[in-house]
Amino acid sequence: MTTLRLWQHFNREDLYECYQCARCTGSCPAMEVAPAIGPRETILRCLNVGHQQVAEDERLWLCCTCHVCEDRCPQQIPIGDLLVALRNSAARRGNIPGRLGMAIELLAKTGRSMIVHQLDEMRAHHGLEPLQPVAADEIREILRKTGLKEVIEF
């Protein structure tokens, strides 16, 4: 089931064009600051050990989807799409890091992905209006429609 889904969202044959030049990893901001797997190794693992294992690795979530790797890839492999597809596959198996789950929960409850009451104090200090409440129910609706509810409880 998950196999089908992944290759529905990403053309597997695109991966065969990768010749492991590692320009992507050299361009990756996440690799500079975190022990991420990096796009090159992600592609190689998908080809050599299977995407199921890649989807189980929590380091997958360190990618910040900036798409620079894709921009510089000499073979124009849509690496960003691959990472999104892999995360979808991981999420459907409940393989989401706890912190991310909390952020989603917060987003669903408050309409914001972070706690902002401290921000309001700072804004007041600078003479700014407090933040307006957001329509959290609308956001919840969007999250529900995108199918996030099937993956995570909020």
Partner: peptide
């Protein structure tokens, strides 16, 4: 592993290569 990016030090004109030893 070819560098993905080159950064220049504007004072020394030296170059930093970012990449991965595959």
């Amino acid at each position: 592993g070819v560098p993905g990016e080159i950064i220049e030090d504007i004072r020394t004109d030296d170059l930093t290569l970012l990449g991965e030893n595959t």
